[in-house]
Amino acid sequence: MVKPVNRIITGAHYGLRDWLMQRITAVMMAVYTGSLIVLVAVYRPEGYEGFKSLFSIQWVKIASLLCFAGLCWHAWVGVRNVLMDYVHPMFIRLTLQVMCIVALLGYLIWFLDILWD
């Protein structure tokens, strides 16, 4: 059966916004990963205590938090894309989306808890 062509007006701008955010967060994560490699190469932290002191530097904490928040946003856009592609029944999709948001928020709080322990 031929379905009529649909344009989804609701949230029309989140197509471009999410596409852009996925790229911006990808750049953020790439810069953070590169910086972290340099930082580890320079400081040469040894064992748990070494890494703990490295991640107790205030700007490392903030950079890590920004990167992790970017990772969560990146993952959210990606997971929602997969759900939009494959899961069409609205209730199931909505349930999975809520589960994804709850999980990502949980990880973010857990991450904050670890960094600012």
Partner: peptide, 13 residues
């Protein structure tokens, strides 16, 4: 404008 929604263009991965 016509292509700006979550599906018409942005389903392309």
């Amino acid at each position: 404008d016509d292509l700006e929604d979550p599906y018409r263009l942005f389903r392309c991965h």
